[in-house]
């Protein structure tokens, strides 16, 4: 049974943050996670339901100095078609191409995918390897305050983040890639469409003289949150991508993750996939 007492549809950020500050608010954007989860009883509506869909300032992709800034309300379909994303964060668009179905992509937003904080969230792993930050706004004492945080540090558990109850995730900022930047994403599902990741892998870095530096490796669906893989990164950092380095990195990746058994896969199989597909992706990076 729903317990919504008030519906709010603010037109601007200031108004939205004011409503949030009053407390007990459920935020609605695309609704593609919120609706099924409330229906299934996994989350309960708070007394105020706030639809942020009319806040124009939360939409769109722009260049902001040395950063690509993606508004939280940008839909997955818009990310797929956006020329700036294609130019500066192609791996994010690639992940969006494996995201649910067209209908869900048309409604679901980037901010929603991040705040849903699923360990299998499709955009999270590529954003982490792109060093994305989230921008959080609040209005604690009458004026708007903003803070930023690396996405890799944002998640605290399944469905849980460091966003405070009075904060709204307004945008994602991605540093523009440096020369030689490569990034790859792989999602394993048992079918090509409409699937939840069994595991996902993101790899990025600066490739120079056959070696990776500034290496970023992240995995989805192998822990309570999407995770960076520091030992795998260390195994790769600065090393020439030859067969031995790739195998060492793949081994490190398998040892580093600690997935669970569930209805989609066993922990053992997830570790095997992490190993085999990290190796395959690094092979591709090496030969690209």
């Amino acid at each position: 049974m729903t317990a919504i007492e008030r519906y709010a549809a603010p037109q601007n950020l200031d108004e939205a943050l004011g409503i949030l500050q009053q407390g007990e608010v459920t935020i609605l954007a695309g609704g593609t996670d919120l609706m099924p989860q409330t229906k299934a009883g996994r989350i309960a509506f708070k007394p105020t339901l706030m639809n942020i869909g009319r806040i124009a300032g939360l939409k769109g992709v722009t260049l902001d100095g040395e950063h690509l800034r993606i508004g939280a309300l940008t839909t997955i379909s818009e990310l797929l078609r956006d020329p700036l994303v294609a130019q500066h964060a192609a791996v994010l668009a690639e992940a969006c191409d494996h995201f649910a179905s067209d209908q869900i992509r048309n409604a679901g937003t980037l901010g929603g995918n991040i705040n849903n904080a699923s360990p299998a969230g499709d955009t999270l792993v590529p954003l982490i390897v792109l060093d994305a930050e989230v921008e959080l706004a609040s209005k604690p004492n009458g004026s708007v305050a903003t803070r930023r945080m690396p996405l890799a540090e944002f998640f605290t558990g399944p469905g849980r983040t460091k966003r405070a109850a009075n904060e709204l995730l307004t945008a994602v900022r991605i540093p523009l890639p440096k020369p030689g930047h490569v990034a790859r994403f792989y999602k394993f599902g048992t079918r090509p469409a409409l699937d939840i990741s069994t595991i996902s892998i993101g790899i990025a870095g600066i490739k120079r003289d056959g070696a990776l530096t500034d290496t970023r490796v992240a995995f989805g669906a192998v822990a309570p949150t999407p995770v960076r893989a520091p030992r795998t990164e260390a195994a790769l950092e600065g090393r020439r991508l030859d067969a031995a380095a790739i195998e060492a990195a793949a081994d490190a990746a398998r040892d580093e993750v600690n997935p669970i058994d569930d209805v989609r896969a066993s922990a053992w199989y997830r570790k095997e996939l992490i190993h085999n597909m990290t190796r395959r992706m690094l092979d591709h990076v090496a030969h690209a």
């Binding site: 048992t190 079918r191 090509p192 469409a193 409409l194 699937d195 939840i196 209805v263 989609r264």
Partner: peptide, 16 residues
């Protein structure tokens, strides 16, 4: 029954 839904009971989809 652990997967009484189309998310985890996998019918063949068009691309397959």
């Amino acid at each position: 029954t652990r997967n009484p839904n189309f998310r985890d009971y996998k019918l063949v989809t068009a691309p397959e």
